[in-house]
Write a protein that binds this DNA or RNA. Sequence first.
DNA 1: TGTGTCTAGTAAAATGTTTTACTGAGGGGG
DNA 2: CCCCCTCAGTAAAACATTTTACTAGACACA
Lengths: 362, 362
Amino acid sequence: MGKTRVSIRDVARESGVSLTTVSLVLNKNDARISEATRERVLDAIQRLDYTPSRLARGLPNRQSKTLAILVPALQHAFADVYFGEIISGIYEAAAERGFRIMLEVARRDYVKRREYLTVLDDCSVDGILFIGASEEHTWLQDFHGTDRPLLVVNNHFTQWDLHRVECDYQQAGRLAADYLTDMGHTRIGHISGPIDKVLTTADLTTAFIERLTERGTRLADQLIVDGKLHVEFGKLACEELLQRDPAITAIFASNDKMALGAYQAIREAGKKPGQDVSVMGCDDIATARLAEPGLTTISMNFLNVGAESCRSLLDLIKTQTGRSKNNAGVNGATNGTVPAESLRVDRRLPVELIERASVQRV
Amino acid sequence: MGKTRVSIRDVARESGVSLTTVSLVLNKNDARISEATRERVLDAIQRLDYTPSRLARGLPNRQSKTLAILVPALQHAFADVYFGEIISGIYEAAAERGFRIMLEVARRDYVKRREYLTVLDDCSVDGILFIGASEEHTWLQDFHGTDRPLLVVNNHFTQWDLHRVECDYQQAGRLAADYLTDMGHTRIGHISGPIDKVLTTADLTTAFIERLTERGTRLADQLIVDGKLHVEFGKLACEELLQRDPAITAIFASNDKMALGAYQAIREAGKKPGQDVSVMGCDDIATARLAEPGLTTISMNFLNVGAESCRSLLDLIKTQTGRSKNNAGVNGATNGTVPAESLRVDRRLPVELIERASVQRV
DNA sequence: TGTGTCTAGTAAAATGTTTTACTGAGGGGG
DNA sequence: CCCCCTCAGTAAAACATTTTACTAGACACA
């Protein structure tokens, strides 16, 4: 006892049937198994307290039922609401379909040793979800135009053709512009993200400016300041804006953290945020609701982004393994290139205006 | 081509040796392999771009070279500096030894279905690191006095005998008391954590009070307020303290977040934190350094806690699998109970005072 | 010459599944 | 009575490794 774990073989013996039968019952390929036999097998499984081994299960069809979440090697990658929320969403969707989640960090030597490929070849993982991508991650090129199941979460690239799922940042920009205009603001400042590095934040800013222009408001270049998506820099950016044009009536920040930084700057300038200067954020993080006054913002629903990303990747994996079974060994030279039939995942998820108390009608 | 991945068999054929030889080279069990042969094998591996399959590797000796990080189902479990830092530490130490990390969330049905056991039986994972444990997690009982490789990170329990690694919160409490006393403070307020729920925070508070008493300062019960380890509640707690005794000269908060909340409360009361009221925190999170004035605090070095936890668990796993090989099938009835020889991991890591500008000498 | 030991390997079993291709029994139609 | 079909199930191959136990040959020693 204790020497070896209970295996499918033991179950077979215990219930007096063959291995195959047990396996069929286990996988709900019940079609040709009689009710009586099935009962018997299920019974034995229960009696022996049998759990099929994932390792052994994955071996025959080379899949581990595991997904990797890959994050860049930032200071506090996991200590971030944004990542946290997306990861939670991914976790939920994966669990729904019986998949597990691995965590990988794209550190320097991880990338140099091309571990992101190993981890797939390895059978450690059936697919990769990459959060926090930016233009700097040139190694993503290894996935450009290939079959490899990697999906970029909430980001996209102009130069590479990769699977992706993201919030509709352009819609978000338009919503913000419309709302501020509707509330009567024309003298507006904007705290942007790092436009040159992160495409999503560039989308947001561009769409915001364009829609403002359409509605007859011109946003001067000098009233756009980069807040680097952080509270502290958001505060600094806001100070800058208030100095450049003290008559500003509203500020749109590309995320809530910077908007909350703006609150601080406005207070320190002796004014009241949401009253003397209206503030609008983006993301709808938890503290946006708790802030005083409640921050009007655009909900990106990151939890949902994570979940939908995960579902898309899972679908992708399913159709891929399905396909490769049909034409196995048929076409010789498709090594790495995409078959014409294969589709890129490219989804944009809707966003939503959340009206609270930080924007005043003027 | 493309039909099947390159296996150890291909390497063997390519280099004209047996499977065994390749395997031996691969596992650095080189002892009885000649230099020439090894070169040949290594060469073939390179030529064929061969990667051993983790799945197949784990099968024979039933280990996956993977660890699970288990976190409680909190609101934003992953959106927390604390978790983030520890996870980063774990990741690093695991990577060092070639282990991968899985993420698991102890949701309600995860616990009900006892997935935390399945995941081990399953061979999905060789061990579990549990972060964020609290008295509510009664299912930990399933690990009490067993061989199962679970380690509690930065928490402990009175009722169960579990492997654990944590910071020395008692030392932290004493350091804080000593420092404030040395700086001449005798009129002190304390913002605690939820003492009844989290043992570590109770340790901290108890040691703080005791050492203060030893040094001749009595901390009145009414000058201890629970700040629930959050910024917002820390602020509230501080307001409460300032009301109960406006002559307080220093406040010790059980973590940095609450200390920063205290900064806000002090400011809103028209006073200057670090000048009119000294503030001391605990944890040394990144923002403690960036705050104005820089927060004097106690560094818990969570990154290190994560790394050391991981190392301890890995050691545990190694000695366990080593041991089970020796006495396999010898003693019949040890089903689940601990052999006398097996040791509990129980480590306390040193903490360190970080002096900045938030405590004034009086 | 016989015995023993060391070196550099190798053959084969074992790990726990899934899946493919087969089989024997029973029944219906011609 | 023979042929074919379906039903319920099984045997065996495949998956990619590790590990154990064995061996052929070289050499030393008595």
